[in-house]
Amino acid sequence: MVDLVQLIISGTATGAIYALCALGFTLLWQASGTINFAQGEFVMVPAFLMLFFINTAGLPMWVAFLLTCLVAMVLLGYTFKRAMVDPLIRHGVIPLVIATLGLSIGVKQLVKAGVTAQAQPFNSIFPDGLLSLGALKVSYMDVGTLVLAGLIVISLQTFLNRTVTGRAMQAVAQNTDSARVLGINVARMVLYTFLINAVLSVVAALLVTPTYLAKFDMGESIGLKAFYAAIIGGFNQTRGALLGGVLVGVLENLTGAYISPAYKEGVALMLFLVVIIFKPEGLLGKTEERKV
């Protein structure tokens, strides 16, 4: 029983990281109809940026983190939108999807060829060791991950629901045309979404890289999980991404421990396929109205 609870807690922590990526993924989809297949590389690039700021520039962790957020907003937010999404989205979803696939390969190989093909260590911001709650032992890293990811999600939700800008962004997400009629600066709101996605990716990188190690292909796995999570939870619901992320994380852990470590990914994957086929709007999603 204690094991089960422990597995669920550590699964939730991993799932929280998936959820951060999935959240960015769904935000982009809602605001601009972008399916970003380079989402995993959006986590890998900040990991290397942070390493650069820490190791080469010799900056402390938090400065490196803030600087990386800034660079990511410019590079993975603004530039990504202006150089790729804006010119492509007019042609429909598919050319953009193909272009993000190209981006994913391009960025990965660029890091591999230009930086290193080998994995690099990345220190956790949380201490090693275990927190004992009676018989239950939880690592500081899992607790820290849960708290930080939770804080980010809550503040994002508050921003989206309580501020004028946030509500304007939601209005754009729901219906671009009527938002425009209401006098909302649609272009700006969409840009905000891209910036938020960039920051979420940096946080995910901060949390996941100590375990995954910084490597050019580290984004493949996390990008895929974020994708599962977004679809399972509901492509057009931010809450869906959270549920999906946690579900994937917990299912992986439980499958790994009780069914077969070799099929760790299997159950989440089956759920993903079942959702696509039987409930394509996702567990929490509403039926798609957007005309693609």
Partner: peptide, 21 residues
């Protein structure tokens, strides 16, 4: 070109999608 080949290929795909879908 070694690994740069696929890097160039990846970015070329983006350019292609924009100018020659």
């Amino acid at each position: 070109l070694q690994d740069w080949y696929l890097a160039i290929f990846g970015f070329a795909v983006i350019v292609l999608m924009v100018y020659l879908p």
